[in-house]
């Protein structure tokens, strides 16, 4: 998925927080790239490091509390080295973010219009009137009826889906080149979810922006992403095109994720298979592969590697598909075909 000039390039990103209980390794050596017009889906459970990664790209971590190393190149500039002032020019203009719960992410005391105008005015020296015109235009674009009237209403006067549309209008008001959507449909009804995803895709086509879609919902990924990055315990465990990762997954964790999703084509009586155990503590990760205590296929004992060595993310035979797993590729492919694939996978 690496391209010659991807708009965003993250290289070996590490983010650590010092807490009283110890150092939290929230992100531990993650690399990926997204080019304009493409969508990267980042999947993982809570605590896998996906949201921390996205906040790093926005430069929203408190630099005193979060130790960040590696590189985050936005249009070639490493934002980890940018002073706060320069970073503010990137935020909201070149890179913008859509948050999970629009009710809590919008300020309850200001009208929708005011909040969009504010987002526009930070980056444009234009009159309030012009910004308001732009805000109404954006509200109209995201499908809010009577945008001029709705602009003067407060977030609590909007329905959940309309609020998320307004949030999207606010994020896109400056035509950002990269949009980070952090679980944008999780707080919404299923029917509204589909509308919001369609809207995002539409807008992406129109503005040719890059999208990072953070979610735990593989259905969302297969619907809108071009590439996928599966994260576990702060590391990338599998990455590749949606086609290859969803159809021919090679990491036992990805198998687990896929098996825990109901399938439209599968047998209705079939049970969903949850992944046993809990996500690991990021302060005290299991030794070796962080997934080994929950992995059915882990090779343990007698000097076998799963709890001894951290597996590297290595390219498999299929182009653009990498997996971090000690199991031999042949065995992974076979195991998936025999044990997992028949159980039906969300596509």
């Amino acid at each position: 998925m690496a391209d010659q000039n991807p708009y965003l390039q993250v290289k070996d990103l590490r983010v650590q927080f010092k807490t009283e209980d110890g150092v939290v390794k929230a992100v531990d050596g993650v690399s990926f790239a997204v080019e304009r017009g493409k969508t990267l889906g980042i999947v993982g459970e809570s605590g896998s490091g996906k949201s921390v990664t996205s906040l790093s790209i926005m430069g929203l971590h408190n630099r005193k509390r979060a130790a960040m190393t590696g590189e985050i190149l936005v249009d070639g500039r490493n934002i980890l080295n940018l002073p706060e002032e320069k970073l503010r020019e990137v935020r909201g203009q070149q890179v913008s973010m859509i948050f999970q719960d629009p009710l809590s992410a919008l300020h309850p005391f200001y009208t929708i219009g005011h909040q969009i105008v504010e987002a526009h005015q930070v980056h444009h020296k234009v009159s309030k009137k012009e910004s308001r015109k732009r805000a109404i235009e954006m509200l109209d674009r995201v499908g809010i009826p009577q945008p001029a009237k709705r602009a003067d209403q407060y977030p609590h006067e909007f329905s959940g889906g309309m609020r998320q549309r307004a949030m999207i209008a606010m994020s896109l008001v400056n035509n950002p080149n990269l949009i980070i959507a952090d679980e944008p449909t999780t707080a919404l009804d299923v029917t509204v979810q589909a509308q919001i995803l369609d809207l995002l895709l539409d807008l992406q086509r129109e503005f040719n922006s890059a999208i990072i879609m953070i979610t735990h919902d593989l259905g969302v990924i297969s619907q809108i992403a071009d590439d996928v990055l599966v994260m576990y315990g702060g590391r990338a465990v599998e990455t590749g095109t949606v086609e290859s990762v969803m159809r021919r997954p090679q990491h036992p964790y990805t198998w687990g994720l896929l098996s825990s999703v109901p399938s439209l084509h599968g047998d209705a009586n079939e049970d969903l298979v949850p992944i046993k155990g809990n996500p690991p503590s990021l302060i005290n990760l299991p030794s070796g592969c962080a997934f080994n205590p929950r992995c059915r296929y882990a090779m343990l004992g007698d000097g076998r590697p799963c709890d001894l060595e951290i597996p590297q993310l290595l390219q498999v035979q299929e182009r653009g598909h990498s997996v971090a797993c000690h199991l031999p590729e042949q065995e992974r492919v076979q195991t998936y075909q025999q044990d997992i694939a028949h159980s039906g996978v969300a596509q």
Binding site: M58, L60, R88, E89, V90, R91, G92, Q93, S96, M97, F99, D101, S104, A105, L106, H107, P108, E118, A119, V122, H123, M170
Partner: peptide
């Protein structure tokens, strides 16, 4: 620590 404060920062406000 509220979400809307994070949104305000994400907009690029001072």
């Amino acid at each position: 620590s509220e979400d809307f404060v994070r949104t305000a920062r994400a907009k690029g406000l001072t």
